[in-house]
Every structure is written in structure tokens, then in C-alpha cells.
Design a protein around this nucleic acid. Structure first.
Lengths: 211, 211
DNA sequence: ATCGCATATCACCGGTCGGTGACATTTGGC
DNA sequence: GCCAAATGTCACCGACCGGTGATATGCGAT
């Protein structure tokens, strides 16, 4: 019988709970990054991890618990992956420009973050809010580290302006992944993004520039 | 038996194909606006319309055809609902500021448009692209009518800048509907939005203003 | 009045979903 | 060696999904 080894061939069947948990979290992360929250179901994740869905219930109490665990691991992973702080920015305008470029770079090459962003837009829930909070927290502390003690110039509603900038960046990145174009602008090549970064930088200099 | 009238109570059972088609389109629109593309299924729409799902297949060839019909009706409805053009803007900056405010006003009170926007972000497909094209076309022609013959000042990458503005507006509106807050900024009351409009206007004046 | 046909409804199919109980297998303490 | 607990696997359930055939029902032309 050729399938007599189907017990041992299916790889690390060793009874290692921690390993299995990590495997499940990785599987959920992969599924989410690849197919979005739509395909994120108990059966899909278990199939992807190569083990039974029952383990998701046993170890995480269900899919929600698994997502939550994914969130905590995400925040640590993301904190490690972000580029370290360089030399301090010369001005608040330079700082914001650098942050905008950094945000674009990080978001553009991380499908998982993009999926989480649209997930909360499409199907908001306390669970996704937690997940998004983990993402947001990591990015915020990273930004705060870059900021140092620079303060925005007076006469500008900095929170509103920064919200606008971040919103634009997030929407453009997500739109690029979804349709590759936005408002008639191509968002495929790096050159397209350089053009956008230039425009954003221009805008930031005008708003926050010393004048 | 109290349910003896469940045959007649389901209202206009008259054999009117056009009426039924309109009923189905309205039902699909309502479902989409209320629960997003997630809940937009054959069974849900038919249940909402109060008739059998078979009719969706017969009249529209399936859910896709119904969505397409929804799209064509959307473009005409939207074109009629948009506010008429007022007196021409004094400058390109004023024009863009007015367009941004108008876009915010339109999007903020139209759940359907918001759902369509996130739909394409979450589950892009040729079908949704068509739907979105209908929406985009109506808004674009409306904007073009407002523009008249004003041209953006030289030295500014107007397409990129406008894409940034529109992206920011769309993302903020959709985020407001989903979570009521963005980047620490409350997006609930009209006052919150006035603040944002002021910031956007300020930015536009700096970028496009005569100086 | 009746016949034909478009319209509307019902019943049913296969498939997938989330969820759960029962069973098999390995590990570790005694 | 043995037993209990932890780990892993399988089978099954009810509910919902999209999709389709068969059947009722009413309108309009003749």
C-alpha cells in the first residue's frame, strides 16, 4: 500500500501546542493578506494550516480569539520591521514629509496592513477595531519617535492636516492595490508614486513651511 | 387561522414586469446601502423585494445583471440629485475648495456611494468597476460643469494634487461612517466636518492660491 | 370563453459554512 | 508498564448559499 506513510509524511505532526498555535496564526495571516477578510473563515484557515479546525476552537476559543492573537503578534512584528530613526528632521515640514514617504513605503509593500484597513471600512466590529488599533499603535509610536521634540507651527490645524495626509495616503495605497489607478492617475510603477510623493511634499512644505 | 391572508398581504402582486424590475433594483439598492456588499446576495435581495429570486434570474440573468441595472439607474439618479451649478468660481483655488466641500456634502449623506467605494476596495471586480465608473462619471461631469474654463495655475501637478484631495475626502467620509473617528479626529458632528473643510480649504488656497 | 404565454411561486439540489461531539494518538508523570 | 491528560483527527449537524426545474396564476389576444 503506497499510502502507508501518510501518517508521517504530513510533516511536523509532533504534538507541539505552541508550534501549532504559531502555525495557525501564520495561516490566518497569510489568508488575510492574500484574499482579504472575505476568505478568512474557520475552514479556510484550518485547511491552510494543514490541521483541523477543532484546534482553533480549543486553543483560541474560536476564530475571534485567533484574530486577536494575530493582532498582538502583528504589533510586535510591525514594531520590529519599521526602519529605525535616522537623524532628526530639520523642521516640522521636513518631518511630516519624511513620515508621509515612510508611511507610503511601509503600506505599499505590506498587503496585510492594507487588508486590515479595508476590513474595518467594510465590516467594522470591535474585533477589527482592536486589530486596527494594534496596527495604528505601532505606526504612531514609530512616528512619535521620528518626531522628537519638533512642534507644528502655529496657525495651522495640525491634527486635521495630518489626518488629511494620512487619509489620502491610505486611500491611495489601498486603491492602488485594488484597481491600480485613482482619479485617472496611474498608481502602478514606482515612478507614479514618486510623482505623488513630490506632490504631497510640495503640499506639506506649503502648509507647514517656515515661509 | 390567522395567516390565511399571507397570500394577499404581500402587496402588489400584480403581474407588472417593469414594476417588479424596479422593485428588485430598489431592493438591491436598499440592501447595498444598508448592509454593504457583504449582504448583497440573491436570497437577501429577493426576500427584501418580497418576491422570488427566480425573477432575478429571469429578468436580469442573475445578480450581476441586476447590479448592472442598478448602476445605470444610479448614474441618472445621481446626476439629477447633484446641486445645480451656481455662479462661476473666482479662481481655480476657489473652484477646488467648492468642489471639495460639495464632494463631502454629497458623499456624507449617501450611504450607497460609500458602500460602492469600499466595495471596490475590498472586492474589486469588473462588475464593481462598472458600478464605480457610473458613480465616478456622474461626479466628474458635475465637477466639469462647475469648472467652466478655469485652468489650474502652472507649476503645480494638478492631477496629483486633486487625486490627493479626493482620496482624502473619500477615505475620511468612509472612515467616519465605519468608525466615526480617524487618526484621533472625531468625524461625527457637522462641526467636526467644518473643521476639516476649513483645513482642506486652507491647504487648497496655499497650493492653488495666487500667492 | 378559451387558449397561449408571460409572470410569479414553490420545492428541491449540491455545496459550503460555522460549530460540536466522539474517537484516535502521543506525551508525561507515577 | 500504566494511566490520565493533552493533542490531533474524523464525522456529523443545522443553516444558509446560489442555482434550477416544475408548477401555479393571471393577463391579453383571438
Amino acid at each position: 500500500m503506497p499510502d502507508s506513510d501518510n501518517k508521517t509524511v504530513s510533516a511536523p505532526r509532533t504534538k507541539d501546542r505552541d508550534g501549532t498555535e504559531a502555525l495557525l496564526i501564520s495561516a490566518a495571516t497569510a489568508v488575510l493578506a492574500e484574499t482579504g477578510f472575505q476568505g478568512l473563515g474557520i475552514n479556510t484557515v484550518a485547511r491552510r494550516a494543514g490541521c483541523d479546525k477543532q484546534l482553533i476552537y480549543r486553543y483560541f476559543g474560536g476564530l475571534d480569539g485567533l484574530i486577536e492573537a494575530l493582532g498582538t503578534r502583528l504589533s510586535t512584528d510591525l514594531a520590529d520591521a519599521l526602519p529605525p530613526v535616522g537623524e532628526p528632521a530639520a523642521s516640522y515640514a521636513d518631518l511630516m514629509q519624511r513620515l508621509a514617504s515612510g508611511l507610503i513605503a511601509v503600506l505599499r509593500c505590506d498587503a496585510l496592513l492594507q487588508r486590515i484597513i479595508v476590513w474595518e471600512l467594510a465590516a467594522p466590529s470591535p474585533l477589527v477595531a482592536k486589530l486596527n488599533a494594534a496596527r495604528s499603535r505601532a505606526l504612531t509610536t514609530w512616528m512619535a519617535a521620528q518626531r522628537g521634540d519638533l512642534a507644528p507651527p502655529t496657525g495651522v490645524d495640525a491634527p486635521a492636516m495630518n489626518a488629511i495626509i494620512i487619509a489620502a495616503v491610505q486611500h491611495l495605497v489601498v486603491s492602488a492595490q485594488a484597481k491600480g489607478v485613482f482619479a485617472g492617475l496611474a498608481l502602478e510603477s514606482d515612478a507614479d508614486w514618486d510623482r505623488l510623493e513630490t506632490a504631497i511634499g510640495h503640499m506639506i512644505q506649503l502648509v507647514y513651511g517656515s515661509r
